[in-house]
Deep mutational scan, measured.
Amino acid sequence: ENVVSAPMPGKVLRVLVRVGDRVRVGQGLLVLEAMKMENEIPSPRDGVVKRILVKEGEIDDTGQPLIELG
């Protein structure tokens, strides 16, 4: 899985990584606010952040691509 998608609709509060960062499975990639709760979205695998497809403050839909890993 190279693309991390939104598991729920919500607002992107914080992006915790930058392009080029090495990430490990379970590491937080970004924080979504949904139903007044903050949810940290973890990396599904080890890899390198290739692209960040959303910006802080954006509203996303379920299934929307958020981050691409390489």
Score class of each variant (00 low, 15 high):
57 G>A: 05
39 N>L: 15
50 K>I: 14
1 E>K: 12
16 L>P: 00
20 G>R: 05
56 E>Y: 09
8 M>H: 12
38 E>R: 10
37 M>E: 11
3 V>R: 06
16 L>V: 02
31 V>I: 13
9 P>A: 13
8 M>A: 09
61 D>T: 13
19 V>T: 06
1 E>P: 13
45 R>T: 10
13 L>Q: 04
34 A>E: 05
41 I>F: 03
5 S>R: 15
52 I>V: 10
61 D>F: 15
15 V>A: 00
6 A>C: 11
33 E>F: 14
61 D>V: 14
40 E>W: 12
51 R>P: 02
47 G>K: 01
58 E>W: 14
55 K>W: 13
20 G>L: 06
46 D>S: 10
19 V>I: 10
40 E>S: 08
59 I>W: 15
16 L>A: 00
64 Q>P: 03
39 N>W: 15
34 A>D: 07
64 Q>R: 11
42 P>F: 12
51 R>F: 08
24 R>W: 11
34 A>R: 09
61 D>R: 14
56 E>M: 10
68 E>V: 15
36 K>Y: 12
53 L>K: 02
68 E>F: 10
33 E>G: 10
12 V>H: 00
39 N>P: 02
1 E>T: 14
65 P>Q: 06
53 L>T: 03
14 R>Q: 05
68 E>G: 03
32 L>K: 01
9 P>W: 10
44 P>L: 05
64 Q>V: 12
59 I>V: 12
22 R>Q: 11
36 K>A: 13
22 R>F: 14
65 P>T: 07
19 V>D: 03
64 Q>Y: 10
19 V>R: 06
9 P>L: 09
39 N>E: 10
10 G>P: 03
40 E>I: 15
24 R>L: 10
7 P>G: 09
6 A>G: 04
34 A>H: 15
49 V>A: 02
45 R>I: 15
42 P>D: 05
63 G>L: 07
30 L>I: 13
9 P>R: 14
11 K>N: 04
52 I>F: 03
35 M>G: 13
55 K>L: 11
48 V>G: 02
35 M>Y: 13
24 R>G: 07
50 K>Q: 10
22 R>K: 12
52 I>D: 01
12 V>S: 00
66 L>A: 02
4 V>D: 02
38 E>Q: 11
47 G>I: 03
4 V>P: 03
38 E>V: 11
1 E>S: 13
41 I>L: 08
11 K>M: 09
32 L>V: 09
16 L>Q: 01
43 S>G: 02
16 L>H: 03
56 E>I: 14
37 M>A: 10
5 S>F: 15
47 G>Y: 03
33 E>Q: 11
19 V>P: 08
14 R>F: 05
70 G>P: 02
69 L>K: 01
59 I>H: 11
47 G>F: 04
40 E>F: 12
30 L>K: 00
64 Q>E: 09
67 I>A: 03
24 R>D: 05
11 K>Q: 06
15 V>Q: 00
46 D>G: 08
44 P>R: 04
70 G>N: 11
7 P>T: 09
30 L>C: 05
55 K>P: 07
53 L>W: 13
28 G>L: 14
22 R>C: 14
55 K>M: 12
22 R>I: 13
22 R>D: 08
62 T>A: 14
57 G>M: 06
15 V>D: 00
2 N>H: 13
65 P>K: 06
